[in-house]
Nucleic acid binder design. Sequence first.
DNA 1: AGGCGCTTGTGAAGACGTGCACAAATCGCG
DNA 2: CGCGATTTGTGCACGTCTTCACAAGCGCCT
Lengths: 256, 256
Amino acid sequence: MSQHRHPGVPGRAGAVPALPDLPEATVARLPEYLRALHNLADTGYETVSSEGLSAAAGVNSAKLRKDLSHLGSYGTRGVGYDVALLIEQIENVLGLTQRRAVALVGVGNLGHALAGYDGFAGRGFRIAALLDADPSRVGEEINGLVVRHVDDLPTVAAEESLAIGVIATPAAAAQQVADQLVAVGVTSILNFAPCVLSVPEGVDVRKVDLAIELQILSFHEHRKASLTALPATGGSALTALPGGFAATDTQEAIGT
Amino acid sequence: MSQHRHPGVPGRAGAVPALPDLPEATVARLPEYLRALHNLADTGYETVSSEGLSAAAGVNSAKLRKDLSHLGSYGTRGVGYDVALLIEQIENVLGLTQRRAVALVGVGNLGHALAGYDGFAGRGFRIAALLDADPSRVGEEINGLVVRHVDDLPTVAAEESLAIGVIATPAAAAQQVADQLVAVGVTSILNFAPCVLSVPEGVDVRKVDLAIELQILSFHEHRKASLTALPATGGSALTALPGGFAATDTQEAIGT
DNA sequence: AGGCGCTTGTGAAGACGTGCACAAATCGCG
DNA sequence: CGCGATTTGTGCACGTCTTCACAAGCGCCT
Ligand SMILES: NC(=O)c1ccc[n+]([C@@H]2O[C@H](COP(=O)([O-])OP(=O)(O)OC[C@H]3O[C@@H](n4cnc5c(N)ncnc54)[C@H](O)[C@@H]3O)[C@@H](O)[C@H]2O)c1
Ligand SMILES: NC(=O)c1ccc[n+]([C@@H]2O[C@H](COP(=O)([O-])OP(=O)(O)OC[C@H]3O[C@@H](n4cnc5c(N)ncnc54)[C@H](O)[C@@H]3O)[C@@H](O)[C@H]2O)c1
């Protein structure tokens, strides 16, 4: 379990073959740290303390230190973390050293927004193909990419090494599209359609459902409203909530 | 889990004054159950077992039963759950009995897609206002709504009882927009900008960052690739598994 | 009426995640 | 060269979440 013994000085990181099998919760936070680190690097920071970085990423500093400790010892006591080195290490662990090719299926309302978004490039991804089943959409050019027919997927997969498939079709078509993606060897899928996908073992699916996010917010809104029914005799209703929330992302922060 | 007693018998499913303080993990899954239930209802189901519903929602059946048990006893042993009743109860708990008004700030690339999406209506929400800071966008009509200037937010808030604010502006503007939303009384925010927001206590923020989702997938892709280097021992590999995975998490089963 | 099969609801155990608190390590400085 | 200030890395305790396993409850059939 506890067997890391880094010489302290990286210098040449060489190959890092040993994937340390990170806790899932840590994996989910690393991208947030990475974003914060890039911000810091752009602002000129060369090192940052766990306190500073955790504030920038919106998490507890002990949690951040524990997360980073899973990658190895890349901090210096009394100083902090080397920003550039840490960026390199996190990108390494996340597999972002190679720019991964993304296939986007379903170029409708949402698909257009995704296809036109230029923010993915800076985060390690490249939209490699746009696909749709509607003949009238095929041929359309968006952001320098031409929409192709979804049945061309095998051809596209042969041209590019597709790492991730994004599904932005209606829910009714999502399972079929997922099957097509899996058939051409895609083993990671991001699904925007509000439905559950069945995929073979070894294929990872993540889902983004905006309505669910809103409904979770609605619950808390509802709860807050029913609490407000209590006497609000002070003006400032700073009733410290007992249990904080801590799901994927709920925060109440303090202003610095 | 000790100090709430349910009368047990619903009888009238009317007012539910006592909010049972659900576990956050449960709250995050209720919307998924709700969606699956609506599907079942549309298909003609009147009752459903925990096994059936959990398959439709992509979760473990014991987990589903425990989740639902927190709402009270709305199932019948030997039979299952009444679909219509369960829908009503979940919508009640989530506070979806009233259609909540959503203000969307930032009508750009992504904002257009959200504004044009007609899927929110069926899930309990109504886009009540579109706001942007760009004068050239103000006045544009999308889906029957006219884009107003973000500085009109106080006026909008006076007209409508805004429940939720959605931020779809560039990250640089997100904090300022959040402040404006909070200033007019919004206490729930869904943030699409890749940045951390500071908000006063009592305000809930949920974040959706597509690049983060992709990066998490990238990590697993990376890990799978490094494992594939292992000998492809045959053995009894393929085990038929219960359909339905997918969710927040991923699944893997590489045994050591 | 009684038994039988099915399904819920939940106790208990274990896995997982979090945050405190502090020893160990490092730097800067006199 | 040693000392104090600072910050990392982590042991530990605690809370939350998941999963199993099964008694209790319900309906149906004989
Ligand atoms: N637009 C939003 O803001 C939004 C918000 C939340 C969720 N969603 C979900 O995202 C998905 C897409 O939404 P949208 O608004 O872009 O819908 P849309 O109808 O505008 O676009 C769907 C696109 O998918 C294409 N398509 C249909 N079947 C296909 C198939 N088998 N293979 C390939 N392409 C196919 C259609 O031709 C169309 O271009 C839906 O599932 C929706 O519920 C969208
Ligand atoms: N488009 C996508 O698919 C996508 C994907 C992931 C993340 N995002 C994020 O979503 C956000 C929006 O992305 P986009 O592609 O729509 O950007 P965009 O530039 O197309 O749109 C941004 C809109 O916000 C408006 N705006 C700017 N400052 C404002 C302010 N202070 N008040 C009100 N409105 C203001 C702009 O006028 C513009 O209309 C960004 O933070 C982006 O990183 C977008």
